[in-house]
């Protein structure tokens, strides 16, 4: 049984149980996503993938909303684009650091979406999330300053690696991804896996750097 859906003015066919995002991808319509990942369960947290469905009071997250027969969807209406821009601006407003100082700037999905949506410097003034760099573990380095709370690492650890290293703690603006009772991630709780690292859309999770052992408390001595 095929479902008939109007996607940006064109009639297309979809299967029951398919999400709006899947339908759009099948039909060559590009909807930006951040917290969504094809290998992970949907979450709907970032709200970047919102689309307009006629008859709905609010915009709906396309990554988790199943299609229905007769649905009329607009993926790039002015309302949708403006909302997406504001959301990316919000993420950038508290996301710390400058991109050209970041190792992952080239592969950062947040930066890519910001560029696509024409978002420049955010209008919003809000305090930045600053957290100490966690580089104790030889397997993984965490910089929560760059975290955008997409929770891909939580789901990757849970669903792909079948571990439960990460959890969410605190509320609202202060919520963050924690390990144990908010301890820096070390080799005791998480070792030799690294599954979550490629899932991170920003530079929050990375392979530890080579220079790690020389960093703390020691002056840089140049020997020639």
């Amino acid at each position: 049984m095929a479902l008939l859906v109007t996607l940006n003015g064109t009639q297309v066919r979809g299967r029951p149980g398919q999400t709006i995002l899947e339908l759009a991808q099948e039909n060559g319509v590009d909807i930006p996503t951040l917290c969504h990942h094809a290998d992970l369960s949907p979450l709907g947290a970032c709200r970047v993938c919102v689309v307009e469905v006629e008859g709905s009071r609010t915009l709906v997250g396309s990554c988790h909303t199943p299609i229905a027969d007769g649905m009329v969807i607009h993926t790039h209406s002015p309302k949708v684009l403006e909302s997406r821009r504001v959301i990316v601006e919000l993420l950038l407003a508290s996301h710390s650091g400058v991109c050209y100082m970041c190792d992952k700037a080239n592969m950062c999905e947040l930066r890519k979406i910001a560029a696509e949506l024409d978002v420049g410097l955010p209008r919003f003034q809000v305090r930045k999330h600053y957290y100490p760099l966690e580089d104790v573990s030889p397997y993984i380095a965490r910089d929560l300053t760059k975290c955008i709370m997409c929770r891909r690492c939580v789901r990757a650890c849970n669903e792909v690696a079948k571990h439960d290293v990460f959890a969410i703690a605190y509320r609202g603006f202060d919520s963050k991804i924690v390990v144990d009772f908010d301890q820096p991630i070390d080799k005791e709780v998480c070792r030799d896996c690294g599954v979550c690292i490629p899932f991170c859309p920003t530079g929050a999770l990375s392979q530890p750097r080579e220079t790690k052992t020389e960093k703390k408390g020691k002056p840089l001595v140049v020997t020639s």
């Binding site: 919000l90 305090r127 605190y170 603006f173």
Partner: peptide
């Protein structure tokens, strides 16, 4: 409201804080 936001979705988590500071 900022204190009580659960922090799951972006508009509420970040937006309420922007509003508080404004």
């Amino acid at each position: 409201l900022a204190e009580e936001s659960c922090g799951k979705c972006t508009p509420c988590r970040e937006g309420t804080e922007v509003m508080v500071e404004t």
